[in-house]
Structure formats: C-alpha cells, structure tokens
C-alpha cells in the first residue's frame, strides 16, 4: 500500500513524518484508518487527525467511521463520514424503535440542503472501491445544550431577557425540519446536541441526518418528539427533574405533569416557574403524559408557538 510520507512531505511539511501512514483509497475498513493516514477521495487528500467522538453522560463514545481531517490541498478542516451500515435498536423512554444508519439518506439530505445555513454542509464523494464518503464542513460553533446551560443568569432573567430570542431561533430550527418533511425526509435524530450555535452570527445549524426509521402511521413523529424535548429544555434552561426541585413544588406534581416518554422530566413548567405564560405552557403540555392531543406536524407546533411569541 502506498505510503503517505511523500505526499505529506510535499503538502503538509509541518506534519511529523514518523507518524505518516498510508494513502487510503478504499475506506471499507474504517477501523484501520487512523492518525497519519491520508484518505484520497473526490480529487483531494484528507489527512486523518482522529476519530470523532460524542460525549454523552460524561463518557466519550468514539465514532470510528467518522474521521476528523485536514484537507492537504487547502488546509481546511473537514469531517469525513465513511460508509457504515448499522442496524440497531434505539431506546426511547421505555420503548424501543428499530433504527438504521443510512449513508445514502444523509447524502440525499446534504444535496437537498446545499447552501442552506440551517443545516450542516458537505458533499458526497465515492472512493475508488465505490464507497460513500461524506465530506463535511466543520460547523464553527457550540452545541446548543451547553450554549444554553452556560448562560450565566438565573432562570427568570434567562426567561425574560434571553428566551424570546431563543424561541425565534427555535422556530427557525423547526422550519428547517418542516422543509425536510415537506420533501419526504426526516432528520431522524432530533436532539439538543444536534443543533450547533455558530460563533459568528449565532445561527443554528442541524447536524447528523443519517438515522432512518420505519414509522408507518406517524413518519415524522420522532422528529416532533425531539422538537418537543428541545422546546422544554429551552424553556426550562435545562431538564428539571423532581430531584432538583424544591420540595413544595414536587409535592404539587402529578404524573400528568411529566414527559409522556420520560416520566422523570417535568413538562408542566409553570408549576416550577409560574411566570411562564399559560399559552406557552399549553404548548409544552402537548408533550406531557396528561395530554390527549398530539401535534401531527411541525406546522401545527409552530403555529401555536408563534401565537405565544407575541406574548413574551
């Protein structure tokens, strides 16, 4: 196999050549591709720096098929997602759904949202063995959840001073998903850490669209569920559970006040923060165990929220 050393000596003179690996043209064995290897795809060369990882519950969860890279031709950082077909159960509260990681789904959506600042950007290339390689631009920003949690203000100040602008951004993120739904696509993994807040301009961008689900009657239900969770998080500036609430608030809670899926998460936030308008709280309650009516579409959710926005 071709050594990457000559290439690196010419295009990345700062790279320590003792770490030079191979030039990879077939990305099937992605576990074997690591630091110092160079992936050649789409007429360019990408120096692999490390595997990407997700931090969840304080643990690093490595994603061996996702490589943090530097393009040798222009020096720009890129993320390369390599072809990985994975079928696995996803736990949603007490339920389990069947999920499939689909490179072609993400490629389709990347093409669909090309140039749209509400989504991560990238292009799909094919390696010499015919495998899908998504070359993604790195979003220069912070995860939405840490961005919100780290705002150095108490809840009431946050709600009165920051939340109206946050809600505007959230409505924009909802519209972005509506754009996908209207074209028959789902995001598939709507979570608060799958939105990045850009350092420049503060725009919100959705990332990671490769989860596919097979829900017949409610094809967009999981996306709506994710949007509900994010809305509750944004309104609460966190995820309130009985363990971190005053005893007098806990004493007044019933199961109907909690999330329909996660029984320990408070959704009826007015019981904790009484200054939240009734109208907004009513929207939140659609995601509570006490609800009898659910949102069928992003349009329904945003329609109700826009009416609330005027009251903030």
């Amino acid at each position: 196999m071709e050594s990457a050393a000559p290439l690196l000596a010419g295009l990345a003179p700062d790279f320590p050549l003792q770490h030079a690996g191979r030039v990879v043209t077939d990305t099937a064995q992605f576990m074997d591709i690591g630091y110092g290897d160079v992936i050649r795809v789409g007429g360019r060369h990408y120096l692999v720096l490390r595997d990407e990882a997700e931090r969840r519950f304080g643990l690093e969860d490595p994603k061996f098929w996702v490589k943090r890279c530097r393009c040798l031709e222009n020096g720009e950082r890129r993320i390369l997602k390599l072809e990985f077909f994975e079928e696995f159960p996803v736990r949603i509260g007490t339920f389990e759904a069947h999920c499939y990681r689909s490179p072609q789904k993400e490629s389709r959506i990347l093409e669909m949202v090309k140039g749209d600042p509400r989504f991560m950007q990238g292009e799909t290339c094919t390696d010499e063995a015919g495998h899908n390689v998504r070359v993604l631009e790195v979003v220069q920003g912070r995860r939405l959840d840490t961005f919100i949690e780290d705002l150095p203000v108490d809840h009431e100040t946050y709600f009165r001073e920051h939340f109206p602008a946050v809600l505007d951004k959230y409505l924009g993120a909802c519209e972005a998903l509506r754009f996908l739904h209207e074209r028959g696509e789902k995001h598939g993994d709507v979570r608060r850490d799958h939105i990045f807040v850009e350092y420049q301009g503060g725009g919100w961008r959705w990332i990671d669209f490769d989860y596919a689900f097979d829900f017949h009657e409610n094809p967009f239900g999981l996306d709506l569920f994710g949007l509900g969770n994010i809305l509750v998080f944004l309104t609460a500036k966190g995820t309130p559970t009985p363990l971190d609430m005053p005893a007098e608030v806990v004493a007044g809670l019933s199961p109907a006040d909690m999330s329909i899926v996660f029984g320990n998460r408070l959704v009826n936030l007015r019981k904790l923060h009484p200054y939240i308008p009734v109208e907004l709280n009513r929207v939140l309650l659609h995601f509570s165990a006490g609800s009898e009516v659910f949102y069928d579409s992003v349009e329904e959710l945003t329609g109700d929220l826009r009416a609330c926005r005027a009251l903030l």
Binding site: I92, F95, H216, N218, G221, I260, V261
Partner: peptide
C-alpha cells in the same frame, strides 16, 4: 398506550 400513540401513531 398513549405514549406509543404519540411516538408511533395510531391508524
């Protein structure tokens, strides 16, 4: 259940 109906829908 209500939660299943919320997530997965009910024809």
């Amino acid at each position: 259940s209500k939660a299943e109906e919320f997530l997965f829908g009910s024809v």
